[in-house]
Simulated scan of single mutants.
Amino acid sequence: MTAGSGICDGRVVIVTGAGRGLGRAHALAFAAEGARVVVNDLGVGLDGSPGPDSPARQVVEEITAAGGEAVAHGGDIATTEGAASLVRTAVDAFGRLDTLVNNAGFLRDRMLVNLDEDDWDAVMRVHLKGHFLPMKHAAAHWRAEAKAGRVPQARIVNTSSGAGLLGSVGQGNYSAAKAGIVGLTLVAAAEMGRYGVQVNAIAPAARTRMTEGTFAETMTAPDSGFDAMAPGNVSPLVVWLGSAASAGVTGRVFETEGGRITVMEGWRPGPSTDKGARWTPAEAGDTALKLLAEAQAPQPVHGAQ
């Protein structure tokens, strides 16, 4: 772990799903910048089934071996008790909570006609409910702090995906959950600002267990040795969003991949017309076609032919 600039000195940060991949990279990056970290990981397989042991302790040991401070949390953050204990762990161990990074997730990919109800429910549970419940309990803590006159400089960083922004063939459940996270981020940013909380989301692309089939090969910039798909490339933006330095940035979505950062611009009104009266179906169709001819073409769904 390389020492950083100390942008997060004194802050206490929770990272969910931090035993591997992006979450591990985020936890190590926050610790390198001076944060004390709660490393959450249930230690499950890629499909959400129980694993033999949790890797959270290994990440904690990496952080402490490098001179940082961290504790492990193995609770299920998609349950009320697990999410509540996650926040309690931060406060009990370090006396405060400043940043929550929601990252935990897994895949159960199927084409829609082959997608079982259990596969839908499981992915919705870990991604969408697993964002909602930690946010709810962290926000309750920060609201109490604000009401006690200790308005925090609190930060939440949620994890969406390009699949949530554009859709992805074979990932209807995952795409819907990740789109839901964007909507949840916008609402949370609007509701929690009064308590000193900023809420943003990232849509990362990196090589992890979830994407190893997509990014199996190392992508390097010519003559630089830069691995564009390394999970650690995403973490600097997450650390900045999770720090006090990001003051004033809330309700935004960033796409990040390799050395590129993009501010994503969501739904905005396009071409429009108002008849001032009810349309007939034929009129509505003709009008819709004219408006579509004036509108920008949508970005293609990932994996579409």
Rank of each mutant, 00 (worst) to 15 (best):
T273V: 13
G225T: 01
P231E: 04
V249W: 01
T214E: 03
S224G: 00
A244N: 07
W240S: 09
F226L: 13
D227I: 10
T211S: 03
E265R: 15
E212T: 07
G213C: 03
D274N: 03
A277L: 04
N233V: 11
A230F: 02
W267H: 10
L241M: 09
G276S: 04
A228N: 00
I202E: 01
P231K: 09
G276K: 11
P271N: 06
E255V: 10
D274I: 10
F254S: 09
F254T: 11
Q299Y: 12
S246N: 11
P231Q: 08
I202L: 03
A245M: 03
P236E: 05
A293W: 07
A297C: 06
A293D: 04
V199H: 12
G270M: 02
L237K: 10
T287K: 08
A201N: 01
S272F: 05
P298G: 10
G270P: 07
V249L: 03
G196H: 08
V263F: 08
E283G: 09
I261Q: 05
G259N: 07
M229T: 12
A221L: 15
G242T: 11
T218M: 13
G251N: 07
Q296G: 15
V253K: 08
G225A: 01
E217K: 00
Q299S: 14
W267G: 07
A284D: 01
A230C: 05
T280G: 15
W279Y: 14
M264Q: 02
P300L: 06
Q198G: 13
P231S: 12
R278M: 12
M229H: 06
N233K: 14
D227S: 11
R207E: 00
G270Q: 07
Q296K: 14
G225F: 00
S272L: 08
A295K: 02
R209C: 05
S235G: 08
V263K: 14
G259Y: 06
N200C: 14
D227Y: 01
E212H: 05
V301P: 02
A247G: 02
V253R: 08
D223Q: 10
S224V: 06
P231A: 09
T220S: 04
L289W: 09
S246E: 04
P298M: 02
